[in-house]
Design a protein around this nucleic acid. Structure first.
Lengths: 196, 196
DNA sequence: AGACTGAACAATCAACAAATCGTTCAATAT
DNA sequence: ATATTGAACGATTTGTTGATTGTTCAGTCT
């Protein structure tokens, strides 16, 4: 089936991209891995970059899925969930980029050539974030008229921690210290204003 | 006097760097502009990059000085000053980078080669920011135990707007809209907690 | 002595050639 | 018909050479 072949291509590409890097792997190699000709690859993906984009998309979806668990965890306040979200996101991407520098190469390439892709990933996470805000609002903990908008602002304010190694050269420890400060600033701003 | 010659070199370099770019100007050209030999330049600056760094440092100081005026403007609340600070900073750097793309080249080079330089500039602005927070605290408007620390957190939260064209591809309008949202998030968090 | 030069050196850049690679598509196989 | 191939093509990369440039320093000038 066509879908299985796509899967096989993705697997081969993921192996080579993370091991040797995007630039060093050729379409001919991927084709050989999948026992086909290089030209045939183009029946499954429009270009080499689209293969990389699909790999990154899956990683992004996986990250967002893992974050979704925060919505369902029982007995946590909105503030705690927000903190979980921010720190889990930071740690996940930090370790991913630290473990394999090849991913940085791919991330930079795709955000340069496919500006929409980055927004797509942000939107996925923003939905979870808006869900957390809504939970907090329903519990009377947050005063958030427009969760989607506020989620977007929180993302803007935490840009520095979304691609840690791209926007700064700080260690994870220092980043966590800063993120905690920013988190506290934000969470205080979400609290309801006192009654007049 | 030695200081005047340094000045002359800076002027010549500023002219050529902004007009033709850092990469396209040679030390020999700068020397000719100053009626000296290329070797003699090294009695005044350790390297070509240090000349660029000094030019950028002066621009940074000028920006910070302009921001300092916000501290002295009478009849403004702390929140208004904070907003002035953030928006003035965004607009100044946005227009500077937009007017002359050569500056982007220099900024990228220096932040890559001289990581400490960026911190130096942040620190200059942070002092003004901490001053604003202190004003707000003294007026009972903000609850800020440690203005220097909170200033650092605000800088982390507004990184996206400090080098607009480097961290995103958004128009000034869209950036201002986002900055306003982030500002409101922050300023609500600075308000004193209600009495128990 | 200190200020300054300009030839010398190493590092970087520019330009060109060759090779490689992504992509297409007419031809072939199923 | 549909799936697949692999040669062909243009674009990109690599490799190489020569020129240019940043930097140093022995020597000159004041």
């Amino acid at each position: 089936m066509s879908e299985e072949i796509r899967e096989k291509i993705i697997e081969a590409a993921e192996e080579r991209f993370t091991h040797y890097g995007y630039g060093k792997t050729t379409m001919a190699e991927l084709a050989r891995d999948c026992d086909m000709s290089s030209g045939n690859l183009y029946r499954f993906f429009p270009s080499k970059l689209d293969i990389a984009e699909e790999i990154c998309r899956r990683a992004s979806i996986q990250t967002a899925d893992a974050l979704t668990a925060i919505l369902d965890s029982p007995g946590r306040t909105g503030a705690e969930r927000l903190k979980d979200f921010l720190f889990q996101d930071l740690r996940t991407t930090f370790h991913a980029l630290e473990k394999n520098p090849r991913i940085v190469e791919m991330a930079q390439l795709i955000t340069a050539e496919r500006p929409e892709f980055h927004n797509e990933g942000l939107e996925r996470e923003r939905d979870v974030l808006a869900g957390i805000l809504t939970i907090g609002r329903d519990a009377g903990e947050f005063e958030v008229p427009d969760p989607e908008f506020t989620a977007e602002m929180i993302q803007a304010a935490t840009l520095k921690f979304s691609y840690p190694q791209l926007f700064s050269r700080l260690s994870l420890d220092k980043l966590e210290l800063e993120l905690d400060g920013v988190y506290q600033l934000i969470v205080r701003g979400l609290a309801p204003a006192q009654a007049a």
